[in-house]
């Protein structure tokens, strides 16, 4: 079975959207670019293994392809962990900004009263 870039990407994007749920919107910039890379790398691995089977001076062996796929799985986990952490950082920054603003406002109010 041939591996198609669009199919792989659509599958990854669909899985990611359901995994991140409501948080998906906030991570739309970094994640899709990385998912595109993942998709094209998976397709590239399949193509190179096929090339090797025709001529062992080209591409790389199935054994190498398997290990590269394992590397790709690690990289995918890294992207997902990064995306989750980026979401937390965004939330953290927003909360801290809100509290900083409240603190400033209420300090002023207290000064006027006392």
């Amino acid at each position: 079975m041939s591996v198609n870039f669009e199919q792989v990407l659509a599958n990854i994007l669909d899985s990611a959207a359901s995994a991140f749920g409501d948080g998906w919107d906030s991570i739309k910039t970094y994640a899709p670019a990385e998912f595109k890379k993942i998709s094209s790398q998976i397709v590239e691995i399949a193509e190179n293994v096929a090339k090797y089977q025709l001529n062992d001076n080209e591409g790389y062996s199935a054994q190498t392809g398997k290990l590269l796929l394992q590397m790709q799985r690690n990289a995918t986990e890294g992207v997902l962990v990064a995306v989750s952490t980026l979401t937390l950082i965004a939330v953290q920054n927003a909360i801290n900004a809100i509290f900083a603003s409240l603190r400033e406002t209420f300090n002023d109010a207290l000064g006027a009263i006392l």
Binding site: Y30, Q41, I45, Y60, T64, A75, V79, A82, T85, I89
Partner: peptide, 26 residues
């Protein structure tokens, strides 16, 4: 192999960049 090296670095860099993007955001 040169082809393997290129593929392995694309993938490795993706993992490294995941650390990088998080540290930059922090």
């Amino acid at each position: 192999r040169a082809t393997t090296s290129k593929a392995a670095m694309k993938i490795t860099n993706q993992s490294i960049n995941a650390v990088w993007v998080v540290e930059t955001a922090k």
